[in-house]
């Protein structure tokens, strides 16, 4: 994985709350065996109307949403299924961060393992971001901060280990493999297990 230390981008807004993983990527697109190319299915039923045409007015379809790498979503983003296809689709579409007031556990964990930043901010900051689409934010992963256009710095919570892996570009499997001897010893302490 490429190290991520900081980046700057404009925001695009999806103010709906409880956007679940079925809306992020519908089950009918999960009969894939690769991680690539899922961006075209991102929010498919929100972006397309009944005849497969583009839904006008949907935030992601507006010209000003092009090249926005930060998605600001309504409260409780990513609830539902454990499908990692959700962060894969967001990344493939071009997003690098999702901001909400609350982000579901498994979605958060899946995102961090793929280099998509799930950022939880306070209600005040969130309200302001929703009310001001298209602003440019700076995300500093090393410091766990988000800088608003007026220079105000907002800290977001992130697990220290996840942050370390992101900024160093380390993948967690490598870390687990270093523990193999300890794992083998642990197995020996449990005679009732096969």
């Amino acid at each position: 994985m490429e190290p991520i230390t900081s980046f700057q981008s404009r925001t695009v807004i999806l103010p709906t709350r409880d956007i679940d993983t079925d809306q992020i990527i519908a089950a009918r697109f999960l009969t894939t065996t690769t991680r690539e190319g899922l961006g075209e299915f991102l929010f498919y039923d929100l972006r397309h109307d009944q005849d497969g045409g583009r839904k006008v007015g949907f935030a992601l379809k507006k010209p000003e949403a092009q090249d926005c790498e930060i998605l600001v979503a309504g409260n409780n983003f990513g609830c539902g299924s454990s499908r990692e296809h959700a962060p894969w689709a967001l990344l493939d579409y071009g997003f690098r961060a999702v901001i909400s007031t609350d982000i579901a556990d498994i979605f958060k964990s899946n995102s961090l393992k793929n280099g998509l930043l799930p950022l939880i901010v306070d209600v005040g900051t969130h309200d302001w971001l929703i009310a001001n689409p298209g602003v440019t934010l700076t995300i500093d992963v090393t410091r766990s901060t988000l800088t608003l256009p007026d220079g105000k710095v907002v800290h977001y919570p992130i697990d220290g280990f996840a942050r370390y892996c992101l900024t160093e570009g380390i993948d967690q499997l490598g870390y687990l493999q270093q523990q193999l001897q300890t794992i083998e010893k642990f197995e020996e302490t449990r005679p009732w297990m096969p």
């Binding site: 454990s82 499908r83 990692e84 498994i106 964990s109 899946n110 393992k113 967690q172 499997l173 687990l176």
Partner: peptide, 8 residues
């Protein structure tokens, strides 16, 4: 768990 964790 997610697919990356399935791999783990």
């Amino acid at each position: 768990i997610g697919t990356t964790e399935v791999g783990h």
